[in-house]
Design a binder for these strands. Structure first.
Lengths: 200, 200
DNA sequence: TACCTCCAATTGAATGTTCATTCGGTTTAC
DNA sequence: GTAAACCGAATGAACATTCAATTGGAGGTA
């Protein structure tokens, strides 16, 4: 009953805990949120069922923590790509590409993310203000408006539109329904930019 | 063991069947895909558990059929709003508004939809070609390109971008995180249009 | 109208399975 | 030596599904 405390940064996370996270993501991707019993997670992660309960209070807690973990990685991408020292337009393209690549290359995470966000676990939603990911995104688009690069539209709208375009493209790619080459990806970004940018 | 056959159009659907669909959507919205036992659906719909199995082979079949049912309604909206007799640009705005309104006013359905689409039920995905909803959308954007109104970008990309913007806005509204007034909705549509339209 | 027949529609208690969680005991690390 | 990490069989609850029994109503018959 002595649950391992969540540490802020993930570097010093126990190997077992990391394995449990990884397995959960993979299995949830394949079998869904349901269809993924704890016993299966345990076997796949190479630990005993009881061990999971050493680290996580319950299945629900495991899923919640995994979501936080995943979200932190997405936040890290935004922080990495949205440096204030380069021109906004360039930064917008960098951010779009960075997030798209991140989701495309972490399809387990993307799938888990989408399932979680649309599930009732996430329904008792944290107020937007506390959502670091969106807070960062808002700030980024606020900068664009402030610098006169973007239309005067609510940054929330700009952030949501941009992010949904990234997610939907990554999902398309992930599902194998469509594949985009470099040229098409640039087209998509350009198209979005044309929509949100202030005409010169 | 004599499962009631699915009828093509939904007008002559048994009342019970409709009630089961409705209850399932509401309950899945509140409790999720899991967390919604058949017994709960039965009670909420005012039928006995056994009755559900008169209409549906299994829980999975119930969910699949509900998804088809929901999708048909979305298809109906697209068909209604995308008449070829009015100018493309106007039609684009009509379609955006129509779908947005539909999702906003059918939040149970929207939530169910999103959960289903991201679940493994839907993973054995129908090839895109058989997806009537997207087929219609593609055709719509193909028309826009043919008529010289849109940039020469794959209609699949245009369709996906547009639809994801609609969904994400409807979800925002549904979750109560953001509310859009008429002016903002027009801004959003205009912004998208600016992105995809061929500059005069 | 009254009565019968037959089958689909409906019921809900019973069944068997699956699964989250527990806990007494063992191993590991320091 | 001891406390944390770990194990995995055992427990009990929740759940999808079944099925034997009941109802309802559409036709037929006299």
């Amino acid at each position: 009953m002595n649950i391992q405390l969540e540490v802020g940064s993930m570097e010093h996370m126990s190997d077992k805990k990391r394995a449990i996270f990884k397995s959960t993501m993979e299995l949830v991707r394949e079998n869904g949120f349901h269809g993924t019993p704890m016993s299966m997670v345990a076997k796949h992660a190479g630990v005993a069922a009881g061990t999971i309960y050493h680290y996580f209070e319950s299945k629900e807690h495991l899923l919640r923590e995994l979501f936080n973990y995943a979200q932190q990685q997405a936040v890290a991408v935004v922080e990495r790509e949205s440096s204030a020292t380069i021109p906004f337009k360039e930064c917008f393209f960098k951010l779009w590409t960075g997030l798209y690549t991140f989701y495309r290359d972490n399809q387990d995470m993307l799938r888990f993310f989408e399932q979680f966000v649309n599930s009732p676990y996430h329904t008792t939603m944290p107020p937007l203000a506390e959502d670091k990911f969106y807070t960062l995104l808002f700030a980024f688009f606020e900068r664009g408006i402030r610098e006169g690069e973007l239309k005067e539209v609510s940054p929330k709208i700009l952030a949501t539109l941009t992010h949904s375009s990234i997610i939907s493209m990554a999902k398309m790619t992930a599902s194998g329904r469509l594949h985009f080459d470099r040229k098409e990806l640039q087209q998509i970004q350009q198209l979005l930019w044309d929509g949100i940018a202030l005409g010169r």
